[in-house]
């Protein structure tokens, strides 16, 4: 089956970093949106179909963990990769417990990031396919036909 293109949302207050990472991810074949605050990120999720969110833990205003919890509440199937600094491992662990897929230490190796994006995208696609099959089965039973 043809590989499903993964749509990524980067949420980070460091504009240069976001711009650089977006360019590199787009060159690697992904569709990328960006947001500079947690609130903007939530708005972007409402507008476009996002598969994986790359979310900075430390942001002014709505911090990463709050944004993560809101994302998982509103879009439970979307996978979140946390970007964290060395001093925030405990926060990263809290994020994983709150539903993040994984975390990466900044500055993250690009290859490692790509690997985790693919894993997260695959998990989201599998979960969505599972949900879709159950919904389809329920509708098929209601049609009472084959």
């Amino acid at each position: 089956m043809m590989k499903m293109p993964i749509n990524i949302l980067i949420v980070d207050d460091e504009k240069d970093f976001v711009e650089m990472l977006s360019m590199r991810l787009e060159d690697a074949g992904y569709r990328v949106c960006s947001a500079f605050t947690g609130a903007e990120g939530l708005e972007s999720l409402g507008r476009a179909e996002i598969d994986v969110v790359i979310l900075d833990i430390r942001m002014p205003g709505m911090d990463g963990i709050t944004a993560l919890k809101e994302i998982k509440r509103l879009y439970p199937v979307v996978e979140v990769l946390l970007l964290t600094g060395h001093g925030a491992i405990e926060t990263a662990i809290e994020g994983l417990k709150s539903g993040a897929f994984d975390y990466l230490l900044k500055p993250a190796k690009f290859d490692e990031l790509l690997l985790k994006i693919e894993e997260a995208g695959r998990r989201k696609a599998e979960q969505e396919e599972r949900i879709r099959k159950i919904e389809a089965r329920a509708l098929l039973r209601r049609s009472g036909d084959f």
Binding site: R132, K133, E135, A136, L139, L140, R142, S143, D145, F146
Partner: peptide, 15 residues
Amino acid sequence: LVIGCPPNAIAYSYR
């Protein structure tokens, strides 16, 4: 209707 026949149901499940 989406429950009218299986192809409709399958198609609808993809949202």
